[in-house]
Design a protein around this nucleic acid. Structure first.
Length: 488
RNA sequence: GGUGCCGUGGCCAAGUGGUAAGGCAAGGGUCUGCAAAACCCUCAUUCCCCGGUUCAAAUCCGGGCGGCACCUCCA
């Protein structure tokens, strides 16, 4: 039984599907006015994992994730860059999709864009108008919150309490401070579409109500998004959709924010880190591992620091990449062993795998699942090191089970999906660049050292080891020769 | 001010009534010509503090202290 934390209930509940075997999910995607940052990555990775796990559990998932391609910030950016808003939106939507691909976030089943659903939005607004929940004023159309008594239920606030803090911006024509725009009358230089209320563009929240309805129907199972969207965005979505169609999402899931090391806005440090910036120095799979190392509802830390040479570094990311390195190295050992070993029959399911699955069943506990992954890999290394740890056939079966199950957990988490060497080689090359290490030169020194070792000239061999170590290269003597790695 | 979340070892982090997962760091060890990797051992009688409920609480309740988020655009 899948459990999940429902924001509206404020507790974990059993996932009871509307239609057995099928789950409809709507996730608020990004507004494409700039490059995506680590925070966007977290939310989209979180719901990617949700979809992956539900699929792994045999459910048919329909994931809808929108792209907001018309809004104030896009328009402003268009003005600043002297190009149409639509062009700005297209540019950053493409960038977002490329970033998500690089992060291993599977494309949603439907990725609707706001500007392609203007007619659907108008339909929702007309329904609200017909039910007395919307009113037109000076070319704008507003939602009449007073007509929706349960407003505030999701965020646990009363209409009265909300009223106290709300205010009306200049140029708005609301009857009440809590009312929000469904449709905004056209202003010069802004994109505009014809509507029953004249030329204009949609308000902030209406697209999600319209697109969720179009692709998932009057009611569906799970609605997700970042926790910063709970109020007012999701509150308003509920008011719109329930107001227009009587029902909406059954469960509300919200992912936590990413903390940037407690540092306040600092231009010199750059307190918003884009996914592309991370990709310049790290494997994005490490970012993914870092993001899922914390339960999705808790705040995640992403520290921005400076090293001795005053370069920007991300300590947590370094650690995550090192952990991923351990995973891939172990997988590589497993693969090599299994390639040379005959197996009799299908290996049984391993304990870490079932524990990891159980952790995921309990509100998608990726942190616990990763903990179980370690248990699997520690056992694998132990068995690989010690040929006599178990009877031959049992040892082979156990190792095969671990290799298979670790990859299965990885598939759900969206990690360890590449051949190990691909990750390991790329990482070493990246670290060589960072530490300014010339691989060919290192190989030459290793050859020299091998000669010294062959002559039993150990002082000379150790001299070379020490010299390379100082440069950030660590040598590993194995039965099949000397290999090397770059230290952090 | 309102609402919600959180406070677990040096750091990160699971755990929501049954006697503290996991990672990093640190120390010791096995292996090694020396190392590295890998593995083993050690590392929270205790979960911010004070009360309470209970046979039993990190987990529930009350009160404090501290932190964060949202209430305005935000993943």
């Amino acid at each position: 039984m899948q459990r999940l934390y429902d924001t509206r209930e404020g507790k974990k509940v059993d996932l009871a599907l509307r239609e057995p075997g099928k789950v409809g999910i709507y996730v608020c995607g990004v507004t494409v006015y700039d490059l995506c940052h680590v925070g966007h990555a977290r939310t989209l990775v979180a719901f990617d994992v949700v979809a992956r796990h539900l699929r792994a559990r045999g459910l048919e998932v329909r994931l809808v994730r929108n792209i907001t391609d018309v809004d104030d910030k896009i328009i402003r950016r268009g003005h600043a860059e002297g190009r149409p808003a639509a062009e700005v939106a297209k540019h950053y939507a493409d960038a977002m999709m490329a970033d998500m691909l690089a992060l291993g976030v599977a494309p949603p089943d439907v990725e609707p864009r706001a500007t392609e659903h203007i007619a659907d939005m108008i339909e929702v607004i007309r329904r609200l108008e017909a039910r007395g929940l919307a009113y037109a004023a000076e070319g704008d159309v507003y939602y009449a919150v007073a007509g929706f008594p349960s407003y505030g239920a999701l965020s646990g606030q009363s209409i009265d309490a909300l009223q106290a803090g709300a205010r009306i911006e200049v140029g708005e024509h609301k009857r009440s401070p809590l009312d929000f725009a469904l449709w905004k009358g056209a202003k010069p230089g802004e994109p505009a579409w014809p509507s029953p209320w004249g030329l204009g563009r949609p308000g902030w929240h209406i697209e999600c109500s319209a697109m969720a309805h179009r692709y998932l129907g009057d009611a569906f199972d799970i609605h997700g998004g970042g926790s910063d969207l709970i109020f007012p965005h999701h509150e308003n979505e509920i008011a719109q959709s329930e107001g227009a169609y009587g029902s909406f999402a059954r469960y509300w899931m919200h992912s936590g924010m990413v903390n940037f090391g407690g540092e306040k806005m600092s231009k010199s440090l750059g307190n918003v880190v884009t996914i592309r910036r991370v990709a310049e120095t790290h494997d994005l799979e490490a970012l993914r591992l870092l993001l899922i190392s914390v339960h999705y509802r808790s705040p995640a830390n992403f520290t921005i620091a400076r090293d001795a040479e005053d370069r920007v570094v991300y300590p947590e990311l370094d650690e995550a990449e090192a952990r991923l390195d351990y995973f891939y190295r172990t997988l590589e050992r497993l693969d090599a062993f299994l390639a040379a070993t005959k197996l009799g029959g299908e290996p049984p399911s391993s304990e870490p795998a079932s524990k990891a699955d159980a952790a995921m069943d309990d509100d998608f506990n990726t942190a616990a699942a990763i903990g179980h992954l370690y248990d699997a890999f520690v056992l694998a290394n132990k068995l690989l090191d010690d040929a006599k740890a178990l009877p031959k056939a049992e040892r082979a079966r156990t190792l095969a089970a671990i290799a298979r199950d670790a990859r299965s957990i990885g598939a759900t988490l969206g990690i360890m999906r590449r051949p190990p060497s691909e990750f390991l080689v790329a990482r070493r090359e990246r670290l060589c660049v960072r530490r300014k290490i010339d691989g060919a030169a290192v190989e030459a020194r290793i050859a020299e050292r091998s000669g010294a070792r062959a002559r039993k000239d150990f002082p000379r061999a150790d001299e070379i080891r020490a010299e390379l170590k100082a440069a950030g290269v660590e040598l590993m003597d194995t039965p099949t020769g000397t290999t090397w790695r770059v230290t952090g």
